[in-house]
Write a protein that binds this DNA or RNA. Structure first.
Lengths: 183, 183
DNA sequence: TCCTACTGTTTAAAATAATTGTCAATTGAG
DNA sequence: CTCAATTGACAATTATTTTAAACAGTAGGA
C-alpha cells in the first residue's frame, strides 16, 4: 500500500511540518514519522484525523493511492464474486470482476430446481441479456412467459418487470450480462 | 465514521460469516466482531486485508461511506486549503472548499512583489477568470500583455498559454475561478 | 430430546500502534 | 561563527488493537 509516502507528499505539498500536522490532528509528530516511514500501520481513526487536518477525504486519499496497475482481463472460476440477492434465496449469482470499475456486468447464474427470483418489479435502467447453458428456466418479461432451454437466450430493457423460475427437475445455469451495472 | 455498520452490511450482502471473512483476510472472527461493533478502530493494514477478501477497494469503501451530510456552503478564511504550485515558488493559492467535489474551483491568490508563475504552456480545458483585489499584476494570455489594477479582471480559455507576474512594489491579491477544476 | 454445526459475542493475553522525551541535522538571525 | 528555533528520527514506555479461547443462541437432523 505505501500510505507513508503518499501521506508525506500530501503533507509536504501543503507546506506542513510533522509537528504542525500532528497538532491539528491531535496526534504526535513521532506517530507521523513512523507512519510516513511505513514502520507502522495507523488505525483508521488515526488516519482519518490526519486527513481531516490536511484536509482531504479518505476516498480521495485512497483513490489517488490505489494501484492503477495493469487492467485485469482474465478471471479464474474461483475469482468470481458471489452475489447473494436479498429476496431470491437459493439462486447463485457469480459476478465476473467487480461491477463498479466497468460499464458491463457479467454473471454466472445457477438456479436449483424450484428456484424463483420472484416478480421483482421495475429495477435499474439499461439492458439485460443471457443465454441458458444447462437445464431449463421459465422467464417472464412484462407478462410474457417463455421456457428457455440450453442455447436459448433473452434480451430486454431492464426496466420491464421480469422473473426467473426453474420449473424443471435439474439445476439450471445461465450466463447473463447487464449494462450499466447498477446492481 | 461508523465503518463498523458499513463493513457488516457489505459482508452480509456477500453472504459471508465473520469466520469465513476472517479466514480469507488472515484475521480472526473476534476482530471482525469488535470492528463491526465499533469497539475498536482497525489499522489500515487490517481493513485493507478485510476489503481485499470481500473484495472491494478502499476508495470504493470510503466513497460510499463518507458522510453525504448537509452540503457545506460557508467557508471561514482559515478553512481554505493552501495549494503550493510545483513551479511558482512564492505565490500563495488558497482554495475554497475542495475541488474534487465540485465543478467550480475558486482561489484566493496572493503574489508578493516579483512573483511570477512563469510561462506555463497549455494546461487544462475549461475557463479561467479573476478579479484583482489589491495591488497590480501583469497578465499575459496568448501573447497579449495587460497590467491589471484593483477592480480589473480577466476571462480566458484555460488552454491558452498564460502567465501572471507582480511587477509592482506591493503585494497583489486576486480572486479567481476555474471550471472544471482539473487542477 | 440430544447432538452437531453454525452463528456472533466476550474475555485475558499477546502483538502492535501511539506517546513521550531526547537526539542530531538544518535553517535563519544577529 | 554562534545561538536559537525548527525540522525529522529514534528508544522506551504507555495505550490500543488483535489474538485465542470460551461462551450463548439458533437451526437442522437423527
Amino acid at each position: 500500500m505505501d500510505i507513508g509516502h503518499k501521506l508525506r507528499s500530501i503533507r509536504k505539498q501543503r507546506g506542513l511540518s510533522q509537528r504542525e500536522l500532528a497538532a491539528r490532528a491531535g496526534l504526535t509528530n513521532g506517530t507521523i514519522s513512523l507512519i510516513e516511514k511505513n514502520r507502522t500501520s495507523p488505525s483508521v481513526a488515526s488516519l482519518k484525523s490526519l486527513l481531516d487536518a490536511i484536509p482531504i477525504s479518505m476516498a480521495e486519499f485512497f483513490s489517488t493511492l490505489e494501484e492503477p496497475e495493469v487492467p485485469k482481463v482474465f478471471y479464474r472460476a474461483d475469482e468470481f464474486t458471489e452475489i447473494t440477492p436479498g429476496s431470491a434465496g437459493q439462486v447463485s449469482l457469480r459476478q465476473l470482476g467487480n461491477a463498479t470499475d466497468h460499464s458491463l456486468q457479467v454473471l454466472h447464474e445457477t438456479y436449483p430446481p424450484g428456484a424463483d427470483t420472484g416478480p421483482e418489479l421495475l429495477s435499474h435502467v439499461g439492458e439485460e441479456a443471457g443465454i441458458v447453458v444447462k437445464g431449463s428456466v421459465e422467464v417472464t418479461v412484462d407478462g410474457v412467459v417463455e421456457e428457455l432451454h440450453p442455447g436459448d437466450g433473452y434480451l430486454f430493457d431492464s426496466r420491464l418487470p421480469h422473473r426467473f423460475r426453474n420449473i424443471g427437475k435439474v439445476e439450471c445455469e445461465v450466463v447473463s450480462a447487464c449494462t450499466p451495472p447498477t446492481f
